[in-house]
């Protein structure tokens, strides 16, 4: 269980408050106007953003300081792959950060690649891949990391609609297999409807507690209405 406990972040004019809990296995979309602090919230949970007050708890315990030690996998907007490493190495980092991979590890890497539909592409460099394939490699690494929480910071923002739908479907399948908890930042409310059962609205300096997706769209609060427009 992931708890955002009395969180406060202040950076110049910008500030963000939050105090809520995410139930295990929940699929949460983080929505809100740009600049409201969606990515900051994810960075705080992942351990990249120092907090001015409050804490991020996992099963009622404070999380470790080191991002790598947290029960979290994260996929960023971009720079998810090291361009100088092969696809297989990039995925292998999920198992061994020092890349000393055993035969067994190599097998796991190959299986993970097969699972995301990139069978036999392990020797390629990221520059030889399409945008969708790059996202798949990042997801293959998430599979191997095998952490109970997955944070997606708009990783599919640059993909076309068909490709994005494909990726969201893949994420759903992976979540079904692993039972991981998802927090996904998106600027497209449609993504929330497709994949997520809850929505965290970030607006006016506050990350609100999660609300069921249907209720959010059926009965949007004022800021959400403005954001959705019309």
């Amino acid at each position: 269980m992931l708890t955002v406990d009395q969180l406060r972040i202040k950076m110049g004019d910008f500030s963000l408050l939050g105090d809520f809990t995410i139930t295990p296995g929940a699929r949460v979309a983080v929505l809100g106007p740009s600049g409201a602090g969606k990515s900051t919230l994810l960075a705080a949970i992942a351990g990249f953003q120092p907090l001015d007050a409050g804490a991020i708890l996992w099963d009622a315990q404070p999380m470790p300081k080191d991002p790598a030690a947290r029960p979290i996998s994260m996929v960023f907007q971009d720079n998810n792959l090291f361009p100088h490493l092969t696809v297989a190495q990039n995925v292998g980092l999920g198992l061994r950060p020092n890349l000393r991979l055993s035969d067994e590890d190599h097998t796991s890497v190959a299986q993970a690649l097969t699972r995301v539909g990139l069978e036999g592409m392990g020797d390629r460099k990221p520059a030889q891949l399409s945008g969708g394939q790059i996202a798949r490699v990042a997801l293959a690494r998430v599979l191997l990391r095998d952490r109970p929480v997955l944070l997606l910071d708009e990783p599919f923002g640059a993909l076309g609609p068909a490709l994005k739908a494909e990726m969201l479907a893949l994420v759903r399948d992976l979540l079904n297999e692993t039972g991981a908890t998802l927090l996904m930042v998106s600027h497209d409310p449609e993504d929330a409807r497709v994949l997520c059962d809850q929505v965290v609205l970030v607006a006016d300096g506050v990350a609100h507690a999660p609300v069921a997706t249907e209720e959010m769209f059926a009965n949007p609060p004022e800021v959400m209405r403005e954001y959705l427009g019309g």
Binding site: A46, F48, A68, P97
Partner: peptide, 25 residues
């Protein structure tokens, strides 16, 4: 700036970071 968070998230530290991130980049 570009790859620090990713490497942090994956736990690439010390010599590993030097070998697999700094030197090649």
């Amino acid at each position: 700036r570009d790859y620090g968070p990713l490497a942090d998230g994956l736990g690439m530290t010390g010599l590993t970071r030097l070998r697999h991130l700094w030197l090649p980049r």
